[in-house]
């Protein structure tokens, strides 16, 4: 009996993160090939209702760990619980989204289990010798490494927006089991005092399907509403280059690039961004790139699928209007 492919489902306030559904969808296809049951592991508080939702994305089995100590993600409690579950049930693979949570949780869990971990993968396939093999961008996307491990479980974190989400099948049922939260005292040393989530109508940058980014050409914070207007027409997020962030026009959390976020949207619109290598490091895995820049020689045009040579202050409002007409 195969021991399963586990997806650690990330939720916040009983809302499942998009990347977890992407992972369930893709792992479903792989589980069909390997014959493993697909298992969704959900940690949190008051999360029973999520079982049916993950089942509809293909999970054969749902493991729920419902405990007040798991209400918010903390490194210690989550590591404790998952380490014990994994040791008990010995899955073949454990996959986690490469989110703020995943980046913090996965390495600690892997170390505790004494196994390898493939981080921030943009490809995942069945592999006869190693169960799974992963593709990961390195050197800011300037190269790829194909990696595998012979340790078990095979562990990886997967970059958001890498895999499409399958259409949910609400008729699909899963076996639901509830497990107790076993947490070591040592794992409660760090105390989460406060979670501050900026209220925003826009999607979070790393999971946004469309990103409108502004660079030094934005000239000042007063011009960002122009980008927000375009983002809102397409349901996207706003990002920025380091030049705009360092100038203090927009918060660091919106910076895209090597010292900022790595994003993989379906559409990335770079407005007045020159296309420095460190900026490309954060967005070159975008599916379609658009550049608007008044310098026809700007490097961004070398990676852009579509470009307009022109002034952003003229083009962006016009584009916003044109798209509004198209999508309404």
């Amino acid at each position: 009996m195969s021991k399963g492919i586990w997806i650690v489902v990330e939720q916040r306030n009983a809302q499942i993160r998009k990347v977890s559904l992407e992972l369930l969808s893709q792992a479903r296809l792989i589980a069909n090939e390997t014959g493993d049951p697909l298992v969704a592991v959900v940690l949190g508080q008051n999360i029973q209702d999520l079982a049916q939702e993950v089942a509809s994305y293909g999970a054969d089995k749902v493991i729920l760990v419902d405990n007040e100590k798991l209400a918010e993600y903390t490194t210690g409690a989550y590591t404790s619980v998952l380490n014990k579950l994994i040791r008990k049930k010995e899955p073949n693979a454990v996959l986690i989204g490469n989110t703020a949570m995943g980046k913090d949780l996965a390495p600690r869990l892997a170390q505790r289990l004494g196994v390898g971990l493939a981080s921030d993968c943009t490809g995942m396939e069945k592999d006869d010798a190693n169960f799974l093999t992963f593709k990961r961008p390195i050197y800011g996307g300037k190269a790829f490494a194909q990696v595998a491990t012979d340790s078990k479980p095979v562990m990886a974190t997967i970059r958001p927006n890498t895999f499409p989400i399958a259409a949910p099948d609400t008729a699909h049922q899963a076996e639901v089991v509830t497990e107790a939260a076993e947490i070591d005292q040592d794992d409660l040393r760090a105390i989460l005092k406060e979670v501050i989530i900026a209220a925003s109508e826009r999607p979070e940058l790393t999971e946004a399907e469309i990103i409108v980014s502004g660079g030094r050409a934005m000239k000042g914070p007063e011009n960002f509403p122009m980008l927000e207007a375009l983002a809102d027409v397409v349901g996207g997020a706003v990002g920025a280059s380091r030049a705009a962030v360092d100038a203090g026009w927009i918060d660091q959390e919106f910076q895209v690039g090597q010292t900022g976020k790595t994003v993989s949207p379906v559409l990335y619109i770079a407005c007045g961004i020159s296309g420095a290598i460190q900026h490309l490091a954060g967005m070159s895995s975008s599916k379609v790139i658009v550049a608007i820049n008044k310098d026809p020689e700007a490097n961004i045009f070398n990676v852009a699928d579509y470009g307009i040579v022109g002034d952003i202050f003229e083009i962006v409002p016009l584009l916003t209007e044109e798209i509004k007409k198209l999508v309404s």
């Binding site: 990696v147 012979d150 699928d305």
Partner: peptide
């Protein structure tokens, strides 16, 4: 090491695509 690199590869360089010409209003449309 637990992780083994099976191979390295370089991305196929992105090609600069279409530059849209014309008046701003036309180009935006």
């Amino acid at each position: 090491a637990k992780m083994k690199v099976q191979n390295y590869s370089l991305p196929t360089p992105r090609q600069g695509g279409k530059k849209i010409e014309g008046e701003p209003a036309e180009a935006a449309r």
